[in-house]
Computed example of a mutant assay.
Amino acid sequence: MDEAKLMFLNKEEEYIFDKFAKQTNGSVYYKNGNNVLLATVVIDENCVVEEDFLPLTVQYIE
């Protein structure tokens, strides 16, 4: 399943999986009306983190 369309509160939601951001391990393109969200995940399966700190970043563009 690469694509899903749902109706929720009389609005159509569209999900497209792994079509965008080809260099990532996973991506989801979400569209609801005029709003669009692209969420991506990248992991390094060979790297072992021995610390108890996990750096996370968020990019927000309006």
Results as ranks from 00 to 15, higher is better:
Met1Tyr: 09
Met1Ile: 12
Met1Val: 12
Asp2His: 14
Asp2Phe: 09
Asp2Thr: 15
Ala4Tyr: 11
Ala4Phe: 10
Lys5Tyr: 05
Lys5Val: 10
Lys5Asn: 08
Lys5Pro: 01
Lys5Arg: 08
Leu6Phe: 04
Met7Ala: 03
Met7Val: 07
Leu9Ala: 08
Leu9Ser: 11
Leu9Glu: 15
Asn10Met: 09
Lys11Glu: 07
Lys11Met: 11
Lys11Ala: 10
Glu12Gln: 10
Glu13Ser: 05
Glu13Val: 10
Glu13Asn: 06
Glu14Pro: 06
Glu14Ile: 12
Tyr15Gly: 00
Asp18Thr: 15
Asp18Ile: 01
Asp18Met: 03
Lys19Glu: 09
Lys19Tyr: 01
Phe20Ser: 08
Lys22Thr: 07
Lys22Ile: 14
Lys22Glu: 11
Lys22Asn: 12
Gln23Tyr: 13
Gln23Val: 07
Thr24Cys: 00
Thr24Arg: 04
Thr24Ile: 02
Asn25Met: 01
Asn25Leu: 03
Asn25Trp: 03
Gly26Pro: 00
Ser27Tyr: 01
Ser27Thr: 06
Val28Leu: 13
Val28Gln: 02
Tyr29Leu: 14
Tyr30Gln: 06
Tyr30Leu: 12
Tyr30Gly: 03
Lys31His: 08
Gly33Asp: 10
Gly33Glu: 03
Gly33Ile: 04
Gly33Ala: 04
Asn34Leu: 03
Asn34Asp: 05
Asn35Asp: 15
Val36Asp: 02
Val36Lys: 02
Leu38Asp: 00
Leu38Phe: 01
Ala39Asp: 02
Thr40Phe: 04
Thr40Val: 13
Thr40Asn: 11
Val41Ile: 13
Val41Arg: 04
Val41Leu: 14
Val41His: 05
Val42Arg: 07
Val42His: 03
Val42Ile: 08
Ile43Gly: 12
Ile43Asp: 11
Glu45Thr: 15
Glu45Gln: 14
Glu45Leu: 07
Glu45Ala: 08
Asn46Asp: 08
Asn46Ala: 11
Asn46Ser: 13
Asn46Cys: 13
Cys47Val: 06
Cys47Thr: 07
Cys47Pro: 01
Cys47Asp: 05
Cys47His: 14
Cys47Met: 08
Val48His: 06
Val48Thr: 10
Val49Thr: 14
Val49Arg: 15
Val49Lys: 13
Glu50Trp: 11
Glu50Lys: 13
Glu51Val: 08
Asp52Met: 08
Phe53Tyr: 10
Leu54Phe: 06
Pro55Met: 05
Leu56Ser: 01
Leu56Gly: 01
Leu56Trp: 00
Thr57His: 14
Thr57Val: 07
Gln59Trp: 00
Gln59Ile: 03
Tyr60Ala: 09
Ile61Leu: 02
Ile61Ser: 10
Glu62Thr: 09
